[in-house]
Design a protein around this nucleic acid. Structure first.
Lengths: 340, 340
DNA sequence: CTGAAAGCGCTTACAG
DNA sequence: CTGAAAGCGCTTACAG
């Protein structure tokens, strides 16, 4: 094939120097409009696409950013479709700004050499913890970053976070309002400083406001997956006739939980009310449809790209820490407490 | 930061030439083990990561492949989580082989210049049609490609397809076996040569085998999304008391359909049996769980990478066309026809 | 307004 | 076994 067309060929055909061709392409320097038109015509005709490698070698800019997503144990990227919505948002945002994205799954063994190797312009990092090896590594890179759902204490870091505490509060409040007293939570790893931790804080605040003392037995800590939710159902149902409502910190685990309860003869919301978190695309189509805490994930992705690109372009934004709002969406999975 | 370390620095510190450093890194040429050890030590200590740009400029290889996914009208990548499972499979496969992936959404205006610009080693293209502009463009690129779910007639093309015809057949056969006669289908665009087309052919074959003449009124062509399925419910229920079963050509549309029917007072499977397609992660957790045609999407992604990399490395495989098998998974959404 | 030339950081024959 | 040098395809001062 003819992917070997270079700036030299264009220069030769257009009868100008390569410097001129370069200037035309980049709108730099002073070029007469006739020359410019002539060169552009040749570029068109030859279907010339300048080599990014050569450019990067000079510029040290790649116009490539990476979306870095944690790996599941099995070496696969997270399966929660939540990540897909996020990535889709990032892709769209990036496309609008002429940069392209790489997708990378990482675990604690990752050394991030690809960032230097590829001269990546920046990173969008999803869900790292403060004291993880990945976190350290990323900071040492000294490359523009935006962290998503990561809650890092360093105020200099650019972050986009959800108002998780409010989400935890809203969901709990909703259940309390329906007369539920023994409200269980189904959460993924409850690591301090993590997403679930803040949701849990919101839960506790709502309880306090209502003068309810917390009961650690009502905290079910399971893998935050659909299977995890399913497994939790056994524990939940075997534990307690007292539990009239449960707040799951992700929609996928809520779905697994509901199905698990169903298999044990419990109907939602008749026997127990369930609240989810995320407002994943299918929640309103579930039977019963799921009451959940809604967030605009795709928007989050777009915000992250915008922040990152500003940062790359050296535009300082006054708000390094952006909190995306949450809202409660009431559907069929929650009803008034009938157990008295 | 010190991302400015180059091969020169390493050479200087290790007291050798840059050629030697290069040879050590690439295992090329003849290097004494002492020199090699010395150089490697310095590389380690300096945390040196060679520039991909410089390398690519010489090699014309980027160790980058792109996953190309069709765009929805709204400029976003497809929202079906099916794509996420696929991309995850590709990512894992790529990671195991030291190449990295770019994710790109494309529409008919895409000119694919990024392929030449970035010297991409290859492309994994999902769901293009034979006579689309994208298809033409991609062929002209002359770059290694693997097409997924695309059904292209050129036997020289590398493709990974599902046995869609068999899937359509199996699902229909299952319903026939349960005594259903008026079996409707809910399909996305029924374009000749497309995925849905083949599933439809399988459906027809099963009907023929049972001596049932096809009825075009039983074909509901809707957007292949969860919303599309939901909307179809009205048409399905208003049409026909005769319909006792419906075969949806995607799980997401099946979910929307079931919910839509539910909202009109129809229960699945009591009033109507439903079969889906894909075996998306949540199907077994739905209430009722969904009978569906199963395919191993992540595996499909991995097969595609392997094929692509072989092709890039010039390894000719005898099988350019790989068909991934399907199987029927019977769950709760289908029961015997009770309408007589 | 235009062009000759250096240089980005590598790899690869080619000498030695 | 090791190194000097050319060259990959661009961009960017610098002359003219």
């Amino acid at each position: 094939m003819n992917n070997k067309i270079t700036i030299k060929d264009i220069a030769q055909i257009a009868n100008v120097s390569i410097a001129t061709v370069s200037n035309v392409m980049n709108g730099t320097g002073r070029v007469s409009s006739t020359t410019s038109a002539k060169v552009n015509k040749v570029i068109q005709e030859m279907n010339f696409a300048p080599s990014a490698s050569a450019r990067n070698l000079k510029d040290k800019k790649s116009h490539l950013i990476a979306v870095v997503v944690p790996l599941l144990e099995k070496g696969m990227i997270q399966d929660n479709p939540f990540y897909w919505e996020l990535v889709r948002g990032v892709e769209k945002g990036a496309r609008n700004h002429q940069v392209q994205i790489m997708l990378l799954g990482i675990d604690e063994t990752e050394n991030f050499s690809f960032v230097k190797t590829r001269h990546l312009d920046g990173l969008i990092v999803v869900g790292v913890f403060e004291r993880s090896s990945s976190y350290e590594q990323i900071l040492n890179l000294g490359v523009p970053c935006v962290f998503l759902d990561s809650y890092l204490s360093d105020p200099e870091l650019h972050q986009v976070c959800l108002d998780d505490e409010a989400g935890g509060y809203l969901g709990t409040k909703h259940l309390l309002g329906l007369g539920h007293q023994n409200i269980a939570i189904l959460t993924g790893k409850l690591q301090e400083g993590g997403v679930n931790y803040f949701r849990y804080q919101g839960y506790l605040r709502a309880l306090r406001e209502n003068g309810i003392t917390k009961n650690d037995k009502l905290v079910f800590e399971e893998s935050s997956s659909i299977q995890g939710g399913y497994q939790a159902a056994q524990k939940v149902s075997s534990y307690a006739d007292g539990i009239s409502a449960i707040f799951a910190f992700s929609d996928v685990s809520a779905m697994g939980l509901i199905r698990g309860l169903y298999d044990m003869g419990w109907a939602v919301p008749r026997d127990i009310s369930v609240v989810g978190f995320d407002d994943i695309f299918y929640t309103q189509y579930m039977i019963p449809s799921l009451t959940t805490i809604s967030q605009d994930v795709a928007h989050k992705g777009k915000v992250a790209v915008t922040m990152l690109l500003d940062q790359i372009d050296g535009i300082t934004c006054n708000d390094k820490y952006i909190t995306v709002p949450v809202s409660l969406v009431v559907r069929q999975s929650t009803i008034s407490n009938t157990k008295g």
